[in-house]
């Protein structure tokens, strides 16, 4: 067996997120980290994954990793190019998206997401990008995966602005509102960070199920703003394979834009 090359926390996070897509059919690709994770999945665990870009592409076959989620490489060789009205209306709102893959600036224990502002909306301390398609993806995609780095500023007890709904105040409330509102999505199911992998327990709260190699429970607790639930069967995430690292370093992100 070949010796594993050292890998960064970002690489581990991207690899773990890509692996979470095994078995999925249609994935809506978000800007930033989701973009590289989904493209890695397509080259590894999920070759049949249909990539959907909000710019209006179904069945994209990007020959290179685009910096932006709008790029000529997502068009050439795609199954379909459609207007954004059709993309959001017919593909997303119609319920054809299995996984919406989102990033976030702030997340709370129930997977509610803020990508709008830090501080007060009218007088923000930091103005963030806003919803883009995230709000409707969180509501209409069958499930939502989140990829983001952990920190006390990002994993918070209370988010400053709810841009995209997660499990609201808990599973019971979220399930009732989704049922009554006729939502097609069941909300967030996986959160992948630079330290571990979380799923949501029966109360709708994030639970640490797997710790990445090199990460510690102390590091996890130091970077979460609430008392985090840890699985009784806490696993260790298998490290990136040589092939996964080669794909990231040589094919997907040779410039290190995503893995910096």
């Amino acid at each position: 067996m070949t010796e594993l090359a050292p890998f960064s926390k970002s690489e581990m996070m991207i690899v773990a997120a890509a692996r979470a897509l095994a078995g999925q059919g249609v994935c809506f690709v978000g800007v930033g980290l989701p973009n590289i994770a989904v493209n890695l999945a397509k080259r590894t665990v999920a070759p049949d994954l249909e990539l959907v870009y909000e710019a209006g592409v179904f069945g994209a076959r990007p020959a290179r990793l685009p910096l932006s989620i709008g790029d000529p490489t997502i068009v050439t060789g795609a199954t379909a190019v459609v207007s954004m009205l059709e993309l959001f209306g017919y593909y997303l709102q119609r319920g054809l998206i299995d996984v919406g893959f989102l990033g976030a600036a702030q997340i709370d224990r129930f997977g509610n997401i803020n990508t709008t502002v830090i501080g007060d909306y009218a007088h923000p301390k930091t103005r963030l990008p806003g919803s883009g398609g995230a709000c409707e993806i969180a509501i209409n995609a069958r499930q939502v995966f989140v990829i983001m780095r952990q920190s006390k500023r990002s994993f918070v007890e209370a988010i400053d602005f709810r841009t995209s709904p997660g499990n609201l105040g808990g599973a019971e409330e979220a399930e009732r509102i989704r049922r009554e509102g006729g939502w097609l999505g069941r909300g967030p199911t996986v959160v992948v960070t630079d330290l571990g992998i979380y799923h949501f327990d029966e109360r709708g709260e994030m639970r640490l199920d797997s710790l990445h190699p090199g990460a510690t429970l102390d590091a996890v607790r130091e970077t979460i703003g609430w008392e985090v639930v840890v699985s009784n069967d806490l696993a260790e995430t298998p490290p990136p394979s040589a092939e996964e690292l080669r794909l990231i370093r040589e094919e997907l992100d040779p410039g290190g834009v995503y893995t910096k």
Binding site: T116, Y121, F161
Partner: peptide, 13 residues
């Protein structure tokens, strides 16, 4: 009409 914005702060903003 669209199925978005439910349970978010966007309609408040």
């Amino acid at each position: 009409p669209l199925r978005s914005y439910f349970e978010t702060d966007l309609p408040v903003a």
